[in-house]
Amino acid sequence: MMSNLFSIFDPSTNIFNLSLNWISAFIGILFIPYSFWLIPNRHFVLWNFILIKLHNEFKTLLKSNYFYGSTLIFISMFSFILFNNFLGLFPYIFTSTSHLTLSLSISLPLWLSFMIYGWLNNSQHMFIHMIPQGTPSILMPFMVMIETISNIIRPGTLAVRLTANMIAGHLLMTLLSSTGNNMNYYMILFLMLIQILLLILESAVAIIQSYVIAILSTLYSSEVN
């Protein structure tokens, strides 16, 4: 039962024994041509408005560390995760963000680049950041250990947060839909209403999780300077 239940996150889609699962992660590239239209449509105007709002917010979070183009990587990460989260809500489309393979591939290199840059260019600031101001001398070794561990697990928490939230909603919808065969007509109508509400909730989760990861990555980058 459990293997069948979790198989919704790893469908065996293939052509001539070539796996097509992870191709869904690149479907978001199809939205790029919208930015090159001579006459922008409503979709492009809305998306451009969202990107400008994100740019202003990320620029505020970066504060003195902001320079031209520094918000591009966080906006790109937000867009990539958002597209994949939404595509996973469609039937028969592989949900790539529900796998640690993808989420760790995003968070780990980003965190490593922040750490390498911080320790090479601002090592004194990185050491100071490990000991909060006003810490008693006897507690300093323990605070260094705690801050080091909390810093090391950051990419893991980013990846697990995204993966767990995407898996939870999909599992709940799958479990509810599997009970529809044993229900009468009125209960099926009620189940359809519940599924629609869950789908709306999952759409909100898709937006919130991509926004949270982009914001946390911006905050982590602002700590290395």
Rank of each mutant, 00 (worst) to 15 (best):
M1K: 10
M1R: 08
S3F: 03
L5N: 09
D10E: 13
P11C: 07
P11K: 03
T13I: 10
N14Y: 01
W22H: 14
I23Q: 12
S24N: 08
A25R: 04
F26Q: 10
F26A: 15
G28D: 06
I29R: 09
I29V: 11
L30P: 13
I32L: 13
P33T: 02
P33M: 01
F36S: 10
W37V: 14
L38G: 14
R42C: 08
R42P: 03
H43Y: 14
W47M: 12
W47R: 11
F49W: 13
F49C: 06
L54P: 00
E57W: 00
F58H: 01
F58Q: 00
T60E: 06
T60L: 01
L62N: 00
L62R: 00
K63C: 02
N65C: 00
Y68W: 06
M77H: 04
L82D: 01
N84P: 06
N85R: 00
N85T: 01
L87M: 10
G88Y: 03
I93Y: 07
T95V: 03
S96G: 11
S96H: 10
S98N: 04
S98T: 04
S103T: 15
S105E: 08
S107P: 08
P109F: 07
P109Q: 05
W111M: 03
L112K: 05
S113K: 11
Y117F: 07
G118A: 10
W119N: 13
L120I: 07
L120H: 12
N121L: 01
N122Y: 07
Q124C: 06
H125Q: 11
M126I: 09
F127T: 10
H129L: 08
G134D: 12
T135V: 15
T135L: 11
T135D: 11
P136V: 14
L139G: 04
P141H: 06
M143Q: 14
M143G: 02
M143V: 07
I146K: 13
T148S: 13
S150H: 09
S150Q: 14
I152S: 10
G156M: 00
L158H: 15
L158A: 13
L158R: 09
A159K: 05
A159T: 01
V160Q: 06
L162R: 02
A164L: 14
N165L: 11
G169A: 03
H170I: 00
L171H: 02
M173V: 02
M173W: 02
T174L: 02
L176A: 04
S177P: 02
S177M: 11
G180R: 12
I188S: 12
L191C: 06
L191V: 07
L193R: 13
Q195K: 13
L197H: 05
L198R: 09
L199Q: 13
I200H: 08
L201T: 14
L201D: 14
E202K: 05
E202F: 05
A206H: 02
I208D: 07
Q209N: 09
S210I: 00
S210Y: 04
Y211M: 04
A214K: 03
A214G: 02
A214N: 05
S217H: 01
S217C: 05
L219G: 01
Y220G: 07
Y220R: 03
V224E: 11
V224W: 06
V224L: 06
